[in-house]
Computed example of a mutant assay.
Amino acid sequence: MRIGKQSNPYTAIATSDAHSITVRGRDLCHDLIGKIGFSDYFWLLVIGQPPSDAQRQMLDACLVSIAEHGLVPSVQAARMTLAAGPDAWQGAMAAGLLGMGTVVAGSTETAGRFLHQVLQDATDGDLEAAAQDHLTQLKIDNLKVPGLGHPQHAGGDPRADRLLAICDELGLSGRYVGVLRAIASQAPGIMARPLPINVSGAIPAVILDAGWPLEALKAVPLLARAAGLSAHLYEESLRSIGFIMSHQADQAIDYDGALSGRETRGAEDQ
């Protein structure tokens, strides 16, 4: 991204005048509102063209698969923020989305870029050789394999299995699903442990094969988790657990720092 003087002062997303609002070349009120579903609109907004039926189904499946994931750190951050400021839904939502890093949810982008790199390095289309080279380097560097492994679903992430099955059924599986499967087939032998495909590996493979741009990959988990966070924030506003979580943290985490003189004397007196 260029910083400083810009040479292309244009946007192709939306414009308006006194009589109409245009989004991606379509009249918002006459062509879109009430006539298009939100997933179709999301695709249209990002890419500029509406999705095919198969593309929409694949996007919907990805969004549904990760919209909700329990009380992960990003959800806890959002709920505790709302507990501390009940009028600050926007702040609580932002806290949750900002907590989506390379470990939780943002791992989708990491895996997608890894798949893309392996594909680019596949000489003459040899996915197996490229996968082997990259996995070997990860082992040398003592790094995890993006998109593989799960602490709970060691026998296979059911969300990933379902997404890949849908992609096959829709006829969308292509290079990215192919390279993911090549990596998954070789990883256990090279890394010497079970490494099933997880949902963060399946999502980029299926949605990139569906035609979604790599540069906008993070938008998919962000939109999905915004829906899940909305549910948690609504529940938090009705029956708050934010301070309960905070209290549990106080109880669960022991202090191992230096003691003050007063604390030391108190311990000796006992």
Rank of each mutant, 00 (worst) to 15 (best):
residue 185 S to W: 06
residue 206 V to G: 09
residue 232 H to V: 06
residue 155 G to A: 12
residue 157 D to M: 12
residue 185 S to P: 06
residue 234 Y to K: 12
residue 144 K to H: 11
residue 196 P to T: 03
residue 231 A to E: 02
residue 183 I to K: 06
residue 215 E to Q: 14
residue 152 Q to A: 03
residue 223 L to K: 02
residue 154 A to P: 00
residue 199 V to M: 13
residue 217 L to H: 10
residue 202 A to T: 11
residue 206 V to R: 14
residue 147 G to M: 04
residue 198 N to L: 07
residue 182 A to W: 08
residue 231 A to L: 14
residue 151 P to L: 07
residue 167 C to L: 05
residue 213 P to F: 05
residue 144 K to F: 05
residue 185 S to F: 05
residue 183 I to L: 13
residue 228 G to P: 03
residue 164 L to C: 11
residue 166 I to M: 13
residue 178 G to A: 02
residue 144 K to W: 00
residue 188 P to T: 10
residue 232 H to P: 00
residue 143 L to I: 00
residue 222 L to M: 12
residue 155 G to I: 00
residue 204 P to V: 06
residue 217 L to V: 09
residue 187 A to V: 09
residue 225 R to C: 11
residue 209 D to T: 00
residue 146 P to C: 03
residue 173 S to P: 07
residue 182 A to I: 04
residue 236 E to N: 04
residue 217 L to W: 08
residue 216 A to T: 04
residue 236 E to T: 04
residue 223 L to H: 10
residue 165 A to N: 08
residue 156 G to P: 00
residue 219 A to P: 05
residue 220 V to L: 07
residue 161 D to L: 09
residue 195 L to C: 07
residue 181 R to E: 14
residue 226 A to K: 01
residue 194 P to A: 13
residue 238 L to E: 13
residue 154 A to N: 01
residue 212 W to M: 13
residue 203 I to S: 01
residue 150 H to E: 06
residue 155 G to S: 03
residue 189 G to Q: 12
residue 230 S to D: 05
residue 228 G to S: 09
residue 165 A to Y: 02
residue 173 S to K: 01
residue 215 E to T: 14
residue 202 A to Y: 14
residue 195 L to D: 11
residue 151 P to N: 06
residue 232 H to R: 09
residue 170 L to D: 05
residue 163 L to C: 10
residue 187 A to D: 08
residue 210 A to T: 03
residue 157 D to S: 06
residue 220 V to F: 13
residue 165 A to L: 09
residue 187 A to G: 05
residue 210 A to N: 04
residue 200 S to D: 15
residue 180 L to F: 03
residue 160 A to F: 09
residue 215 E to D: 15
residue 164 L to R: 13
residue 194 P to Y: 04
residue 210 A to S: 15
residue 186 Q to V: 02
residue 219 A to H: 11
